[in-house]
Amino acid sequence: MNSDKITKTVLFSVSILILMLAAGMLYSLVGGAIPAFKEFGLKFIFSGEWNPTEGEEKYGALPFIVGTLMTSFGALILCLPLSFSTSLFLGEYFRGTRVARILGLLVDLLAGIPSIVYGLWGFYVLRPALIEIGFGGRGFGIFTAALILAVMIIPYATSLSNEIISMVPNDLKEAAYSLGATRLEVITSVTIPNARSGIVAGYILAFGRALGETMAVTMLIGNTNQIPTSFFGTGNTMASVIANQFGEADGLKLSSLIAIGLLLFLITGIINAAGKLIIKKMN
């Protein structure tokens, strides 16, 4: 066998292994979720009732689905102005300068901070600061969780957008300048249209990360298992309720938690697929 063939075989088996891992995960999630769906049917997805009291057990995933989507979309919206300006700064205005290199390094550093550290920072610094500037209550809730998530996903959104923006061919931009375009006009009509699929991909990556984030959210969201009444109220997310309740769960409750895991898996899958579709349409 020549080396080419060996490489091919190794690569093939490794990718099959990854495929099997994903399939195995899906298989055990579906297997574990069956009792919950048998008991509640599709109402499991649309019911807002979460009652673990023995004898009157009723589980619905809606509070957590709503909580997850609210925190993740909130985080995406909050991070958008910050990360977008940063990527323009790094990829367009100060491309290749030392300032950009240092700033880029710091942004990437944000991605390396463990989630629990963000949680602690949010708990001891961000939350009291929010109370200080006049947010009511105790500072726990969807908004605080979304804010910390926004900080956590900035590096994911920024790095990719910045890379793509700096890859826009100079010829195009110079052509626009020679036609008398201002810098802002070049950005809006040349740079962004050229880089948009990469920028969108960056934000989808960031959104996916926000969907599954657990520790920092658990520490700040207030963990109430009801459909959130407002953006500033308390709530809970899918990942957070699983992390909280898994240890002591059995029977129907355990199955319901696994079912929530399955739903999270599916939602993440759908969002990624939708993102891919958008990118394809744009090109």
């Binding site: 673990p52 105790r138 207030g222 963990n223 909280n244 002591e248």
Partner: peptide, 29 residues
């Protein structure tokens, strides 16, 4: 309305994880 259990349907309040979580939240608020 509530009953007995390892986890409950709480009428009011917010949740924190573990004894350290509850104690930490109380000391902070």
């Amino acid at each position: 309305e509530v009953g007995t259990g390892k986890s409950l349907k709480w009428p009011v309040g917010m949740g924190a994880k573990g004894n350290p979580g509850v104690a930490g939240t109380i000391s902070q608020a």
